[in-house]
Design a protein around this nucleic acid. Structure first.
Length: 663
RNA sequence: GGGCCCAUAGCUCAGUUGGAUAGAGCGUCUGGCUACGAACCAGGAGGUCGCAGGUUCGAGUCCUGCUGGGCCCGCCA
């Protein structure tokens, strides 16, 4: 890893600046990586920054610093370029030797890294199968958790289950009003069909049914009300549906290597009176108040800060303007809105509510990790502590920015500016469908034909289900695997095909920056060539094969190779070395992770991993390891390959991608 | 009307707290498999970084304005 070297270089140069120019305040400067290795391994542009205040040419400053820095461990040469860059050259053999032996990890330095952090993601309405929109959320959320964990942050992953929401109410309405089923009838369906798919279709039928006659919506209102108050057949049916669908979602996510620590049920927030408590707090601080007049009479509302504080004067349409500035938290019929319950949830996460859930073990996940759930029943005494985080990330698409902003605003109003600051809306753009893919799904673009894409809609049943996509990918991968590995058993083939499918889809979800709307095209997503997950896996598989063959043919293990490095002259790493390019790039993983956490931009991680794989593939093609006759070159190459595969495997793991034995 | 996001090669997109010659994949054209596996590699063609100003040693990147497109602003979630 490279961060530790960068810090060392930074500190040494900062010292030199202080000494050379008698400066107490050295400006912040970064240790960068030059575009090519011939320009150096690391570079600093601080001479440009100092030029103005020192009234001196960057070139002169760079030269003075180059000679005054002195010896930096691990650095063999420091050069000032004519235009003012300071380029540094590393002791390459020592660098690789150290890394390949002790897997140099940089300890988390920031104190923030030790602060407990909650990542909430997925949060799919439990009333139908998960689709590609949910997939982007889960892929981002899961990767965020992995990346934070990588740098030493204690992480708790939560999946919020909105079991009392309109969407669940709708599906209950569907079973009752359209299919006239009771709890037992629903159970029969659940036991005899692909239930999440069944509900997917039923949900869109309910939507149509609502559109037939306006008064059909009364069934929804009544169901919602019953859910809120609990008890009775409605609650029983809803609870049953929710449980089955949640399990289906978890199974889908497990296929993608996505797991959780805790399922947070909205129902428990209500039953354990979290909302009552939150409501007290909000009322006490005047953050919400009872509106007595106008359209919102009888509602408890929250005032909305509209950024600008002087937007009063104009507005002919004054009534509307006034009303749009209040957000309903409790409806006039006494039912709290989604945002009210979410406020309570956020308060709890930050340890500000003064209450806790009860917990029960929900199950054990594929990787052996226990999954806990909130409950209103007795708590399992063996449950670990949850909540009380000092930082929370809510992974939610950008359409909910408005509501997320309200959450922060509420925290600030209640006198918790620091918590507001640490409540981060991890925002990303939605996934839509390309016209070609929508057509494949049987949708004739009519009104939407002019738009550049077609929006996924659970209500209309318009979208690509994650399980369908995975099945398609697995079938395709399976055929490819079979072609190349005729000796595989059925099980081996399925397993590897599944790993490849997951790589393809997770990489696809990560390669775009989060601010970019993904126009999902099935053809594009099914690709295994070029910038794709399988390409990355393939690079590692190739590296692994080298070591298999070394073992097979020469009885040499990775350990043997590394052990022999001490006495081996390292010409292979000198000068313009393709091997060094790979090694150095591989070492940058920790630097990239820092950048990713700063920017919350996982495309940087994806592109880094791809670039690294690309570099290795080029090297692999040009230089042989097994057939290299010069023993020293062979050793160093093998050592470089060992480091490469360790690092790319790590990078892939951060994206939830496994490396197949063969493919 | 207000807020947020997007605009870079034919298409889809990267481009790090401003830094060295604007990159990748796909597509296209040319070449490379008796295997450390071609799910690969090498090479060619392809650019007014939406437009106009500004900031500075330096702008695809920061600021302002504009154009085009998308999303949000509900007693839905």
């Amino acid at each position: 890893m490279i961060l530790i070297v960068q810090r060392r270089v930074h500190d040494a140069i900062a010292d030199a600046i202080r000494r050379q120019y008698a400066l107490t305040d050295v400006p912040a400067f970064a240790v960068e990586v030059p575009p090519t290795r011939t320009l150096g391994d690391l570079a600093v542009t601080v001479a440009f920054q100092l030029a103005r205040s020192l009234r001196k040419a960057p070139r002169a400053i760079a030269q003075e610093l180059a000679s005054s820095i002195g010896k930096i461990p691990g650095v063999t040469r420091i050069e000032a370029t004519p235009n003012g860059y300071l380029n540094l050259y590393l002791d390459r053999p020592a660098f690789l030797r150290e890394r390949v032996r002790s897997s140099v990890m940089s300890a988390p330095t920031e104190s923030a890294a030790a602060e407990k952090t909650i990542v909430e993601h997925t949060a799919i309405n439990p009333n139908k199968a998960a689709h590609i929109g949910h997939l982007r959320n889960a892929a981002l959320g899961d990767t965020l958790a992995r990346v934070l964990q990588f740098r030493g942050t204690p992480i708790e992953i939560q999946n919020y289950i909105d079991d009392l929401g309109v969407q669940v109410a709708d599906i209950v309405v569907g079973f009752r009003e359209l299919e006239h089923r009771d709890l037992e009838g629903v159970r029969q369906i659940a036991d005899s069909t692909r239930f999440d798919y069944y509900c997917w279709d039923l949900y869109s039928r309910v939507t149509e049914w609502y559109e037939e006659r306006r008064d059909h919506l009364e069934a929804r209102a009544k169901t919602l009300h019953d859910l809120e108050h609990g008890g009775g057949e409605t609650t029983a049916i809803a609870a049953f549906i929710v449980d089955r669908i949640v399990r289906a979602h978890l199974a889908t996510m497990a296929r993608l290597n996505v797991g959780y620590d805790l399922l947070t049920y909205e129902g428990d927030i209500v039953r354990l009176k979290f909302w009552t408590r939150a409501f007290e707090i909000l009322k006490a601080q005047g953050a919400v108040y009872l509106q007595t007049e106008g359209k919102l009479a009888g509602c408890w509302v929250m005032k909305i800060d509209e950024g600008s504080d002087t937007a009063e004067s104009i507005e002919p349409d004054r009534e509307n303007a006034e009303e749009s500035r209040e957000k309903v938290i409790v409806r006039s019929n006494g039912v709290v809105t989604y945002i009210g319950k979410d406020l309570a949830n956020q308060f709890w996460k930050l340890g500000l509510l003064g209450r806790d859930f009860n917990y029960r073990l929900f199950g054990v996940q594929a990787n052996g990790r226990p999954l806990w759930s909130t409950t209103s029943e007795a708590s399992d005494p063996g449950a670990p502590p949850f909540g009380r985080a000092s930082r929370i990330y809510n992974v939610i698409d950008s359409r909910q920015m408005y509501l997320q902003a309200l959450l922060s605003q509420a925290l600030r109003t209640l006198g918790h500016p620091r918590e507001a600051e640490n409540s981060i809306h991890f925002s990303y753009e939605m996934v839509a469908l390309s016209h070609a893919t929508a057509r494949e799904l049987g949708y004739e673009g009519s009104e939407e034909a002019k738009k550049p894409f077609i929006e996924v809609s659970g209500r209309k049943g318009l979208g690509v289900k994650i399980d369908d996509l995975l099945d398609l990918l697995i079938d395709k991968a399976s055929a490819e695997v079979a072609k190349r590995n005729p000796d595989f058993t059925e099980d081996e083939r399925r397993r590897v095909a599944s790993q490849i499918a997951v790589a393809a889809i997770r990489y696809f979800m990560l390669k775009f920056s989060r601010g970019k709307l993904i126009v999902f095209d099935i053809e594009e997503a099914l690709s295994f060539e070029g910038e794709t997950g399988p390409y990355l896996q393939y690079a590692v598989v190739r590296a692994n094969n080298i070591f298999h063959k070394l073992q097979e043919r020469e009885a040499l293990s990775e350990r043997d190779v590394i052990g022999a490095l001490d006495r081996a002259p390292a010409e292979e790493l000198e000068g313009d070395s393709a091997l060094w390019d790979v090694v150095f790039e591989a070492a940058r993983l920790d630097d990239v992770v820092e950048q990713v956490v700063r920017s919350l931009e996982f495309s940087a991680l994806a592109k880094y991993a791809f670039g690294l794989a690309q570099m290795f593939n080029a090297f692999y093609h040009r230089y042989s390891i097994l057939n290299e006759e010069d023993a020293n070159r062979k050793r160093w190459r093998a050592a470089g390959v060992a480091y490469f595969r360790a690092q790319l495997t790590r990078a892939l793991d951060l994206m939830g991608i496994e490396v197949p034995v063969r493919m």
